[in-house]
Design a binder for these strands. Sequence first.
DNA 1: TTTAATTCCGACTAAAAGAGTAGGAATTAA
DNA 2: TTAATTCCTACTCTTTTAGTCGGAATTAAA
Lengths: 136, 136
Amino acid sequence: MKLTNKGRYAVMAMADLASNAKDGPISLTEISIRQNISLAYLEQIFLKLKNNKLVKSSRGANGGYVLEKPASEIKLSNIIFAVDEEVKTLNCKKNSKKGCNNKTTKCITHNLWDQLDQHINGFFEKVKLQDLTKLN
Amino acid sequence: MKLTNKGRYAVMAMADLASNAKDGPISLTEISIRQNISLAYLEQIFLKLKNNKLVKSSRGANGGYVLEKPASEIKLSNIIFAVDEEVKTLNCKKNSKKGCNNKTTKCITHNLWDQLDQHINGFFEKVKLQDLTKLN
DNA sequence: TTTAATTCCGACTAAAAGAGTAGGAATTAA
DNA sequence: TTAATTCCTACTCTTTTAGTCGGAATTAAA
């Protein structure tokens, strides 16, 4: 599975965006200071968030980002997926015609890991960006 | 969180041990062949499993391993924990006196990641080694 | 029209973790 | 005595993570 700082930062930044919404867009500089994440790193992350249609940008002075949709409609899975590309624990060879571990059959744990994936994904599917502010 | 090949291999090996139980102990060579995991790697893994009292060893020729407890009493969390040392997704600074990201407060996602940890751990707590054979 | 603030973009790098190898010592059944 | 086996430590190669860096493009405001 991939659940790294980058994924966490993305969630933090999106939550920041949601809870500090104001009239115009919010600049990464602001978020960088509030969340203590390097600006350059945030830029990388927001590029992906933007490509995944989670935020809209305006360039130039006073530019920045806003959420593309209401926070109630953004699932955490969307965010994680956007920056980490996959939420999968399954390390079995996926694309090989053969089964796991290059044997002809699925390994004993194959279904188990599948279930775990569903379990974790389910968690991130359930929680919306909006819910985050309530957790604190 | 750490959910790596090593953890998966450990579960596979333990399941192998459970389902191929016979009169005497089972050697790592056997498991290595059946599960297609390198012998040297298995040795590393079983060292930890043994230290965590999940298996018993007998040395010398015809030696090998047996489960220390019935498969119905071994939780997957025990196995994962034994080889991966921790099941934690939380990347926030843990031991620092300060909060996450060196700020004085917990980060927005702190509780969220805590919940996720519990969610995943709950999954591994529920499943027993014995249950694995039924999944296939 | 200039300047400063900002997003955009690709390339680069250092550190850590993952995945496994290698070599040999100790033990024990046959 | 020998072969099979666990035990143990150290090493190495590769991939991933977690950023940094430099500069181009854009735009509001002075």
